[in-house]
Design a protein around this nucleic acid. Sequence first.
DNA 1: CGTCATCATTTACGCGTGTAAACATAATAT
DNA 2: ATATTATGTTTACACGCGTAAATGATGACG
Lengths: 123, 123
Amino acid sequence: MAISEAEAVVMDVLWREAPRSAEEILAEVGPAQNWQEGTVKSLLNRLLRKKAVHAERDGRRYLYTPLLKREQYVQQESKGLLDRLFGGRVAPLVAHFSEQRKLSKKDIAELRKLLQELDDNEH
Amino acid sequence: MAISEAEAVVMDVLWREAPRSAEEILAEVGPAQNWQEGTVKSLLNRLLRKKAVHAERDGRRYLYTPLLKREQYVQQESKGLLDRLFGGRVAPLVAHFSEQRKLSKKDIAELRKLLQELDDNEH
DNA sequence: CGTCATCATTTACGCGTGTAAACATAATAT
DNA sequence: ATATTATGTTTACACGCGTAAATGATGACG
């Protein structure tokens, strides 16, 4: 089963650094999200059930480690969107952002570099 | 409130051509989705409640027209993903697909053209 | 030891979703 | 006018999600 948006927030914390205790996760995410303890614990348990994290005992508490890799998650999410909205093709997506004027200078420079590299590798 | 995935399938039909009756929508989407009449009707009603479509009477039935534009929807969805996963920047997203080897020849050609155009417009 | 504090686990509850059956209504055919 | 058909509207129900309170377990402290 797919991991939900709130769950992804928790995963994000673990992707930045792991293993972490529930308390640490709460400290990092609670203020911004306005969550309290129970909420984080529930999310962690659902992530456990979904096998997205692993828990190992550390004295009285648990330390959580991600099992699902960020790269996998990003992959699923972005492929989903790409398929649903852009017929699975990347160029139309970029064109969309271009029309929306969402391409920064930096984006453009990086894209150019990226294409250059693709060129180079293509002996 | 946001429109759900199933609802988006119905919108897609209407975006391709509108106005359409519930029956026509069912005909187009039922087989692929394995939906039956009630399902489509419910989705249409929820879309009405969300003001995403408009219904106008046509004899005994209604004809539905999208109010929410496809462009708006695409915008919301893709901005959401971009912000959540790529810090709001387009280049990392493309880089991601590049690493996944999801860039087709055609994509690359089109991207190149796109960048070229951006260049040209930049007197 | 028994009590308190600290964690984790279970249970709860309202809400949206996916899916559809049941019901209402109006037009049509007999 | 009535029975039938075509449509739309209401209601239903299980499930996941966001959020958290209640409960349970375990180690620390007096």
